[in-house]
Write a protein that binds this DNA or RNA. Structure first.
Lengths: 339, 339
DNA sequence: TAAATTCGTGCAATCGATTGCAGGCTTTAT
DNA sequence: ATAAAGCCTGCAATCGATTGCACGAATTTA
C-alpha cells in the first residue's frame, strides 16, 4: 500500500502546525481556529486527498470506532438481516462492525472475544444464544459495553433487544386451535439456547391456556438436520401422535418437512407445521411455511442504537426492547384432518 | 471499558525495559533475549493477562491485520458462505475481516472504500460484480492489494477466484438437451454484473454448439422480484415460446417459479427451470431446484489465501483460480412435454 | 592474554493523530 | 490609556506498541 498523506503533510504545505490542521478538520474543534485558516486548510486537505488514519486516532482517543458483532453462524439466514440492521446504524455514525462466528462453541467464542478486545472494539453486539451466563458475566467484569440481541437476557447486566416470542408462540397456537387441532407437538431447540427455552416455555403456557394436548421433543441444535432427526424419531415412535407441529424455528420446521416426507405424510393434509422467524425463502419452501415473522433488521437497528447510546454516554436507554412479531399464515398449516 | 495492562505494566513488574518485554513476547524476536528472561516475562505477562493492543501495534508496523471484504449484499445467501470461507483463513493467520455491503451502488461503494482505507486495511477481497473497471483501477492506482472473488477479472490487474461458470452452463444445457428440450430461454441478469455477462455468453456458445433454439431476456437485477417481473413479461408475450428456462442465478430461478405459477404452468411438467449457485435451501424450494453448484466457501478460502500471499510477499500465486462446479439435478428439470 | 565476536538489554525515536497549556496579538471594558 | 478578556496558534506530551542503535558483559578466537 502506498503511504497516504498525513496531517503533517497538510501542515507543512499550509505552513502551520499539525495541531492547527487537526483542529481545523475536526467538527468540534474548528471553532478554535479562525474561519480563514479553517477554509484554507480544508481546501489544501481536499487537494491533497487527506483522510485521517483511524488507527492513529484510535490510539490517542482510546476509541476504535469499531464494534464487535458476535453471531453463531452467518449462514443461518436470520443473522444477515440483523447484521445489516446493525451496520446501517453503525455506518451512519462512523462505526464499523467486526462480525465473528462462534458456531456455538465456547472455546471459539473465547478466542474471538480476546481477538476483539485486542482490536480495542468500543462495544459488543451479542447474538449468540447460550443461556450460560459465565461468558456474559466475564464481559461485564471487564467493563465491556454490550447489547444482547435475539436472546433472552433476564438476570444479565446488559440491555437487550428481542422479538416478542411469547406472543408469537401464542398466536401460532391460537391459529392451530382455531383450525381444530387438539394434539400439538413442540419440536424445541436445545434448552441451552435462550430462544429455544423461551419459546418452549411459551408453548407450554399457551397450550395449557388453550386446553391443548401437547408433546415436546428436543432437537440437539437449531438446524435442519437436527430437526429432521428428532422428528423422524418421534414419528417412528408415535406415527399418529399429533396433527400439528410447532417448531422452535424455521430450520427445525424444514427438518420436519423432510421427516414427514420420508414417512409419507403430507403437509398440511396429514400434519400442519409452523415455524418461527419467517426467515428468507420460507415462503418458497414446499409447502410454503406458516411461521412467526420476527423483525430481524429492526432488531439489529435497535441494538446498534442502544449500544451507541451506551458508548457515548447518552441518557440511559430502556434496558429491554421487545419488538412485535406477526403470524404469517401460509400453506403448511391447515384444518385438522378428518378421521 | 477498563484500561488493559500494557507492555509498560509488564515491564515495570518484571524490572526490565518495555523493549525487552516486546521482544520476549514476539515469536520472531524472542531469540534476541535470554531464555531465562523470556520465561520470566512470559510468566508475568500471563499472570497479568497481558494482551497486545492491536491498534498501537498497527500504527507502528503499518499493518492493521484487517481485511476489507466488499460484497453487494450479505442477505444474498451466496455471500455468507464466501465470507465464512474467507474468515476461516483470515482468523487462522491473525487477520480480521471487515465486511461491508454496497447494494451494488457505486456511491456507497466509494464511501465504504474510503472508510476501509482510513481504517488502514491491509487488503481487499472484492465480491461485487460490476464490470465497471474504473473502481478497480482506482484501487490499483492507490497501491491497494486486492483479490476478486466470484467475478470475472480479465483485463484487471488483480488475481481472482471464480467458479467455472462456462462449464456449469454447458452442463446445464447438455442436461436439458438430453431431456429433449429444443427451445430454451436464458433469463440473464443485468450485463453490468460480471457473472451475468459471463453466464450469458456461455449460454449463447453452448446453445449454439448443441443446436438449441434460444431466447434471452434480461432481468434488471439478480433478484427474485426482477426475475419474476422479467419472466411474467416473457410469458405474456410468448406463452408457449420455450420448454425450459436457464436462469442466471437461483434467485432469478425462484422468480421464474413465481411467474410460472401465476401463469398456471407447472414445473417441470410444462416448463423446466435450472438455476445457478446451488444456494442454501434451493433444495427445499417448490419444486426443488436443479442448479449448478458453485463452491462458495472454497472460493472464500482461496481468495483469502491469495490475498495473504500477496500481502506477505510470498511467491507470486496464480493470477486466476477457477474452481470446478457441478450440476445438481433435482425436481425442477424434466423431460420435454409431449405435444 | 588481548582482541574480536556475540549476547542481552536499555535508550530513544517512531507511527499519526489529539489536546492541555502557554503565549502573542486583538479586542473590549473601564 | 491601560487592564482584562478573548482569540489564534504553536509546542510538546501522549496513546502503546516496535525497532535501530549503542554499550557493557560474556564468550570465543588467535
Amino acid at each position: 500500500m502506498r503511504s497516504r498523506t498525513t496531517l503533517a503533510d497538510v501542515a507543512k504545505r499550509a505552513g502551520v502546525n499539525v495541531s492547527t490542521v487537526s483542529r481545523s478538520l475536526n467538527q468540534e474543534t474548528e471553532g478554535q481556529v479562525s474561519k480563514a485558516t479553517v477554509k484554507k486548510i480544508r481546501k489544501i486537505a481536499d487537494e491533497m486527498a487527506y483522510s485521517p488514519n483511524t488507527v492513529a486516532r484510535g490510539l490517542r482517543t482510546r476509541k476504535s470506532m469499531t464494534i464487535g458483532v458476535i453471531v453463531p453462524d452467518l449462514t443461518n439466514p436470520i443473522f444477515p438481516p440483523i447484521v445489516r440492521g446493525v451496520d446501517s446504524i453503525l455506518f451512519s455514525r462512523g462505526y464499523s462492525a467486526l462480525v465473528v462466528n462462534t458456531d456455538n462453541n465456547a472455546e471459539i467464542e473465547n478466542a474471538l472475544f480476546d481477538s476483539l478486545m485486542e482490536r480495542q472494539v468500543d462495544g459488543l453486539i451479542i447474538a449468540t444464544g447460550h443461556t450460560e451466563r459465565s461468558m456474559i458475566a466475564k464481559y461485564h467484569n471487564q467493563g465491556v459495553k454490550a447489547v444482547l440481541v435475539n436472546r433472552e437476557a433476564s438476570g444479565v447486566p446488559y440491555p437487550s433487544v428481542i422479538g416478542d416470542d411469547a406472543a408469537g408462540i401464542a398466536a401460532a397456537l391460537e391459529h392451530l386451535a382455531a383450525l381444530g387441532h387438539k394434539k400439538v407437538l413442540h419440536l424445541a431447540g436445545p434448552t441451552v439456547l435462550s430462544t429455544a427455552s423461551v419459546r418452549s416455555n411459551a408453548f407450554t403456557n399457551s397450550a395449557k391456556r388453550l386446553g391443548l394436548i401437547t408433546k415436546v421433543v428436543k432437537a440437539t441444535a437449531l438446524s435442519v438436520s437436527a430437526g429432521e432427526i428428532a422428528m423422524n424419531k418421534f414419528l417412528d415412535a408415535n406415527p399418529k401422535g399429533v396433527t400439528a407441529v410447532l417448531a422452535g424455528n424455521d430450520l427445525l420446521a424444514l427438518g420436519v418437512f423432510h421427516a414427514l416426507r420420508k414417512h409419507g405424510l403430507r403437509t398440511p393434509q396429514d400434519i400442519s407445521v409452523i415455524g418461527f422467524n419467517n426467515m428468507p425463502f420460507s415462503e418458497d419452501f414446499n409447502p410454503s411455511l406458516t411461521t412467526v415473522s420476527a423483525p430481524h433488521f429492526e432488531m439489529g437497528v435497535e441494538s446498534a442504537r442502544l449500544l451507541i447510546n451506551q458508548i457515548e454516554g447518552k441518557v440511559t436507554s430502556p434496558r429491554k426492547i421487545t419488538l412485535p412479531v406477526t403470524l404469517v399464515i401460509r400453506e403448511s398449516s391447515g384444518p385438522v384432518p378428518k378421521r
